[in-house]
Amino acid sequence: MSDRALTVESVDSGYGEAQVLDDLTLHLEQDEIVCIIGPNGAGKSTVLKTVFGLLEPWEGVIRLDGEEITGTPPEDLVREGVGYVPQVDNVFGSMTIDENLRMGGVARDSGLEDVIADLYERFPILDEKREAKARTLSGGQRQVLAFARALVMEPHVLLIDEPSAGLAPNIVQNVFKDVQKVNDLGTAILMVEQNAREGLAISDRGYVLDQGTVAYTDEADALLDNPEVSRLYLGG
């Protein structure tokens, strides 16, 4: 059993005949937050889609806790302990909060009521609005619901794509606090974030992707202090 929650080794991936990821290697330690940053089109979201089995890698190996999961379908990965929060279409707008959470637990064999009760305790805003339709929620509230729905299966690795996308600046910090809250309870998080400085600020380590490969990797604080990274990828 590896100490690493997730490893991606020499992975090539893409869409159709268009290659996006080129010999990509990265890893996620147990209980860590790792942030992937980089310019638009660098392949950040493609990393998460490939890990989660939405795209099958052309080359390379992906491991979860040391066991190979390369090309495993998403429905099987959820049972193995991997959760995924996509950037868009991450809640069912016509369903209530409670119905969304129950949909997140359709693959559970037992314990659904207990885990939903725990999520309501951890995220009081969901408890207050549990019978509200998801489409009536604010952007930040929808993001919290998306996190909570992914947590119904109690994953130990959570993939999050652009949690701050489309949110007002005053809401972004609250969403990042929720990401930290999830991590503090023992879930390792691999997060893609366009809001690079804020994403790195809550992370342990970071990867800078450029043209589908790792251009820089370091502790998050070191990336924030790196003048070359700042000039090229953080806006100076």
Rank of each mutant, 00 (worst) to 15 (best):
P163K: 07
F147M: 05
D210S: 15
A196W: 08
Q143E: 12
G139T: 09
Q143C: 06
L190K: 06
A201I: 05
E162D: 07
S138N: 12
R197D: 04
E162F: 01
M153H: 05
T136R: 15
A201E: 14
R135I: 03
A165N: 10
R122C: 01
A134Y: 12
I202C: 14
F123Y: 15
L209S: 05
R142G: 05
E154A: 10
D127W: 08
I160V: 15
F176E: 08
G199L: 06
V157F: 02
Q180F: 10
Q141D: 14
V179F: 04
F123P: 14
A165E: 04
E193R: 10
V144R: 09
V192C: 11
A188G: 10
G166N: 04
E128I: 01
L200D: 03
L200K: 10
A148M: 03
R130T: 00
D127M: 10
N170D: 15
F147K: 08
E128F: 10
A168F: 11
F147C: 07
E198I: 06
Q143S: 09
T187M: 08
K177I: 02
D118I: 03
E128D: 13
L137W: 06
M191N: 11
L119A: 03
Q194F: 00
P124A: 07
A132D: 14
G140R: 05
L158D: 01
E131F: 09
R197I: 03
V144C: 13
A165S: 05
V152R: 01
Q180G: 07
K177A: 14
D178N: 15
F123R: 15
T136E: 15
I160E: 03
P169G: 09
S164C: 07
E162A: 00
I189F: 04
L159F: 00
K133F: 12
G206P: 09
A188V: 01
L145F: 03
L145T: 06
D118P: 06
E128H: 13
Q143F: 03
A150R: 00
D161Y: 02
L185M: 11
L137Y: 04
K177S: 12
L167P: 11
L167Y: 05
Q211F: 05
H156I: 01
D204N: 15
V157E: 02
A196V: 02
P124T: 08
Q180Y: 05
N170W: 09
L159H: 00
K133V: 02
I171V: 15
E193K: 10
R149C: 09
G199Y: 08
L119D: 00
G212N: 12
D118G: 11
A132F: 12
V192N: 04
V208E: 13
Q141I: 03
G199P: 08
G186N: 13
A132M: 12
R197N: 10
I125K: 14
G139L: 12
